[in-house]
């Protein structure tokens, strides 16, 4: 066992932190080679392991950065790489292309089963009809990956050109930053990437959950630091409010829980390549802990700040929103608690 960062990863963290403090957009991140850190060497990158993902996203979270990295690299890019779509992956690595994954559907919350979006084969290729919900980063994406039910009931994975006919995007900004779109597909032409995508998607979502939990961990630390500064400098009743035990103990509890999240992120990062059962147990464990602690940290930090915590001019509010809303992607606390139990039950049956 070893809990230290390799030299390469420590260097990546340093340079990424430096770039992010100067404020970095997608082009700047691509130029720095950050997308490449999220792909394996075989895919054209130089990382792609669990701890690479954890490190990059923790730094993004710490900076409160809103980037398309999760949707473009982890979801769309990763799926493209697994399907051997080298040209598109190269376009992502160079920063030319952005991507999104249209998977979830209205009325099915966090699990798109049974999938309503259907694929039909014609002479000229495949066509998709259906509705995909809150597709994050779709407005900026030229590469939209889309799941759909095949005539034989398997889950197929398709590439939809966002400019193609028969696709309607209803765009919306997101509360925590970034954009998304509702996607209405009406006999939309699409390119089939693989016709048996279910387990590929599950494994991909495990990585997305890791990225999201690591980003949340970074946000928690940013919020912790802001709150600590505030407790040390805000004077009431003639002294810094951090002298009051009622606040000290709540801050200590926050710190303990943030360390729990760090451990859950490490556990998930270290088990991404494990067997399915083990990996998915860690996915749901990380999502449950992150979701619970996200709520604790954002609510407690706002409460300890008072009204200033909700103002636009101060960073805390933005961070807290971003942190709280991570529970609304890839399954919330209740979804993953039930899933964790179900996985344990399957384990006992087998």
């Amino acid at each position: 066992m070893d809990f230290t960062l390799s030299e390469t990863r420590a260097m990546l963290a340093d340079s990424l932190r430096g770039t992010l403090t100067r404020g970095a957009d997608w082009a700047a991140l691509a130029e720095l080679g950050v997308p490449a850190a999220l792909f394996t060497e075989a895919e054209g990158g130089y990382g792609g392991e669990g701890f690479d993902i954890a490190l990059v996203f923790e730094e993004l979270g710490r900076a409160g950065a809103v980037t398309p990295l999760l949707d473009t690299c982890i979801l769309a890019g990763g799926l493209l790489a697994e399907c051997g779509a080298d040209v598109q992956v190269a376009a992502i690595l160079s920063g030319e292309s952005q991507g999104a994954f249209a998977h979830w559907e209205p009325g099915s919350r966090y699990s798109p089963e049974p999938m309503q979006t259907a694929a039909r084969e014609t002479d000229g290729g495949w066509r998709l009809t259906g509705h995909k919900a809150v597709v994050v980063n779709a407005p900026a994406s030229d590469l939209i990956l889309c799941s759909a039910r095949l005539p034989d009931e398997r889950t197929g994975l398709f590439l939809v050109a966002s400019a193609s006919s028969g696709v309607e995007l209803r765009e919306t900004p997101l509360m925590g930053g970034g954009d998304a779109a509702e996607i209405i597909l009406d006999d939309t032409p699409a390119q089939l990437l693989t016709s048996d995508a279910a387990s590929m998607i599950e494994a991909r979502l495990a990585r997305a959950c890791l990225a999201q939990c690591a980003e949340a961990l970074g946000l928690m630390q940013a919020i912790r630091d802001l709150t600590l500064d505030y407790l040390r400098t805000r004077n009431q009743f003639g002294q810094p409010i951090g002298r009051f035990q009622a606040l000290q103990h709540r801050m200590a509890d926050m710190l303990i829980e943030i360390e729990q999240v760090r451990s859950a992120v490490i556990n998930l990062a270290g088990h991404l390549a494990a067997d399915r059962q083990t990996r998915e147990h860690h996915v749901s464990a990380a999502k449950v802990l992150t979701g619970e602690v996200a709520r604790l940290v954002s609510e407690e930090s706002i409460q300890m700040h008072g009204g200033i915590g909700l103002t636009e001019e101060y960073a805390l509010g933005r961070h807290a929103i971003r942190l709280s809303l991570c529970d609304h992607r890839f399954g919330d606390v209740d979804y993953h608690l039930a899933r964790f139990s179900a996985l344990s039950h399957q384990e006992n049956q087998s």
Binding site: V261, A264, I266, N267, H282, L289
Partner: peptide, 8 residues
């Protein structure tokens, strides 16, 4: 879940 994290 809390225990898995605490072990680490």
């Amino acid at each position: 879940i809390a225990l898995m994290a605490m072990e680490t």
